[in-house]
Every structure is written in structure tokens, then in C-alpha cells.
């Protein structure tokens, strides 16, 4: 029962330039769709250091990670 609250990953697909950095950094949570743009790999996730890194490293800040219940921004925050 100590599970972290579920998180939701969103990708702004108009902004996404398909660098692929996220899919390679956090393959469990992000993948590249056939059109070359990133897309969340699952509806919710428990999050990981890799996911945070992917959101922080996106060259155009197209990725956000939020708490599914509260909507609070989890990454990128620095």
C-alpha cells in the first residue's frame, strides 16, 4: 500500500519535434508513434527517475508529468 500516487504523462504533440530522447530515456513511459512524435506508453504510471529525466531533458519541453489525482506538476520542475 506504499505505492506512489499514480501519475499521468502528457505530450504536447504540436510542440514535439520527435527528438526521440524521451523514448530512449524512459521507454516504459514514452514511445515514438509512427508519425515520429512522442506519445505516452500507458494511461498512468508510478513514475521513475528516468521519466523525470525524460521530461526535464525534452529539447522543446513538450512533456509534462502530473499527479493523476491533484493535477500537480511533478516534472519538469527544476
Amino acid at each position: 500500500m506504499s505505492d506512489a500516487p499514480p501519475l499521468v504523462v502528457t505530450v504536447d504533440r504540436a510542440r514535439c519535434i520527435g527528438s526521440g530522447l524521451c523514448a530512449r530515456t524512459a521507454p516504459a513511459d514514452l514511445s515514438l508513434a509512427p508519425d515520429g512524435r512522442a506519445t505516452p506508453a500507458r494511461p498512468t504510471t508510478e513514475g521513475s527517475a528516468e521519466l523525470t529525466e525524460a521530461a526535464e531533458m525534452c529539447p522543446v519541453e513538450a512533456i509534462t508529468v502530473r499527479d493523476a489525482a491533484t493535477g500537480e506538476l511533478v516534472a519538469p520542475v527544476w
Binding site: A14, I17, S19, V60
Partner: peptide, 13 residues
């Protein structure tokens, strides 16, 4: 509207 391709796209953006 749509980002231009001046800075490229993909891994080498």
C-alpha cells in the same frame, strides 16, 4: 501555429 522546420526536427533538432 505549427513550429517551423528552421531548427530541424528529430534527434538533430
Amino acid at each position: 501555429g505549427t513550429p517551423s522546420l528552421t531548427f530541424g526536427a528529430g534527434p538533430h533538432h
